[in-house]
Design a binder for these strands. Sequence first.
DNA 1: CTGAAAGCGCTAACAT
DNA 2: ATGTTAGCGCTTTCAG
Lengths: 334, 334
Amino acid sequence: MKGSITIKDVARELGIHHVTVSRALRDTGAVKQETRDLIKKKASELGYKPNRLAQDFRNKRSNVLAVVVPDLRPYFFAKFVSDFMEIAKEVGYSVMIFQSGEKPGIEKDIIDSLIGYRVAGVVASVTQDTVHESHFDILKEENIPYVFFDRAPEQTEASQVLVNNFKGAYDAVTAMIQSGKKRIAYISTHYKHQIFRDRLAGYKQALKDNNLPFSDKMVVEGGFFMKDGFHHAKKLMELKEKPDGILAVRDEIGIGVIKYLKKNGFRVPDDVAVIGFDNDPMGIACEPELTTVQQSIPSMVMGSFELLLTQIRSSTLSFEKKIIEPKIIFRGSV
Amino acid sequence: MKGSITIKDVARELGIHHVTVSRALRDTGAVKQETRDLIKKKASELGYKPNRLAQDFRNKRSNVLAVVVPDLRPYFFAKFVSDFMEIAKEVGYSVMIFQSGEKPGIEKDIIDSLIGYRVAGVVASVTQDTVHESHFDILKEENIPYVFFDRAPEQTEASQVLVNNFKGAYDAVTAMIQSGKKRIAYISTHYKHQIFRDRLAGYKQALKDNNLPFSDKMVVEGGFFMKDGFHHAKKLMELKEKPDGILAVRDEIGIGVIKYLKKNGFRVPDDVAVIGFDNDPMGIACEPELTTVQQSIPSMVMGSFELLLTQIRSSTLSFEKKIIEPKIIFRGSV
DNA sequence: CTGAAAGCGCTAACAT
DNA sequence: ATGTTAGCGCTTTCAG
């Protein structure tokens, strides 16, 4: 393990001062073009790689962006992170990922650790139970900008990129009504987060605007996966007044619903229409293919990245809210 | 932006030397228990957070592990990374993720940048075209251990955790034969990587061991997604000698195959059986549910993490190879 | 058990 | 245009 090459090594080889090397390599300060070229040549010749640990330490800030999500596995988050990394890389940032596992306590620990790393900025989608953003305050104290995407604390003064979930649900229900459905059920999760309440509100409003009655029995909740959708569909279809349309809060749940329906002789969408949320590619695997409410991930990535970068570059913490309008992707289940 | 609290601040408050604070906080060196307690109390009182930038710089090594994958979106990689982060966190490591996008050039850039970060270790699944591991040599020079998982360069002297792909394909084909199939096709990707060749070899061997003829026409390749499976199934089913079983190199492709078959009046598995690779949850969404070759991700995570940690802790680069045995998950498509 | 000294590699500020 | 000085926050080494 030979010690790595430092700017001093490069300087010595050239018989000049290491500070000049530093300046030349970073294209800052005044250095004669000739010297600069010479230095760069020698540096790459020696295989010099800047010690980022030293750079970051000296600059009191790293070129790392942190992304905090509840769970990396769902397609929505995997895709967001994937896209975010690509765009961050273009501007020279690396990315550290953290999973809260939907646990506010872990989320807090993560945030605390971030300040130790002196990350340049943070993008987060909070847990279902994160109501306050108090554990993010510490970032403000350290002047580390942060942006929420998809899921933000209820009251926050930080920048955020959210989806118009009310409209997503509203449009989905409206679409089913327009295709002739009259008894539309809604399967939610047990998660209490704002975005799920917004969807519920949109569902109710659509019913109301179409003079359709709302019934408690038509709203069930709990779970996150296919099996939960299967289970809820069973409950719903055993009702005296069966639904003829079901809105699912996630595509996976919607797929579970379709599986139940088909297995039990209900035709989709003729007997029962189904719509999910997320535009998960999984929705294309099932039959009929699942109609879904799409939340444009590239838009969310771009939005949150811009919001973050602006704050980093201006060294100012700002408060801006971007709303992404969702779009129904019609496939075969309506 | 008040400057952060440093050990010197803590020391000053207590009227002692900052070195003692450093020692106390890290539970190293000889410090009177009483002093140690006092220091810890004061530190947390002041909200002291160690500056990891300074620590890492001083230690010439960060507590960050790097994970390099071709793409974070496929379930296999998302799940691997997700699990890996959890286990890494338990031991105090944070994780930086990088995507090569299947481009060796980018992979090289990533590796180069890693040495700047002085990461503690690297776990990588290489691109389809990474034959040599020459661009990883630089890590050796810096004494940074690395482990390959799932996809390793053809010749490598680094530790690795691989799946027995030969056996996976062999068992899958055998299973179809046992269920009475006699003309089994194989859909590969255009990727030339070892693991895909191993699967092909396993496919051929299973045919041979059952005295079934091998035919070039029964092997098609190209693509990665559902639509590719759809397309290839079409080609295959338009053959004069149609297959009655199809092995797909990925679940997504297998699902595309099933979609084509059903759409065109072939019954699955009665007319044609289908098996995929990866145990992607997507396989449960389709109907019939896709039988698949599972590669245990937890085993791979554990394996590669252990291999890495051993090297980090012993400051030795080692060469160990772990093979994970795959397992067929029988669902409805065989 | 605690303190003092020194330095990691780099860069901002000032001097020449 | 280049060099000098100084120091970021921390830890290792050596003294007391």
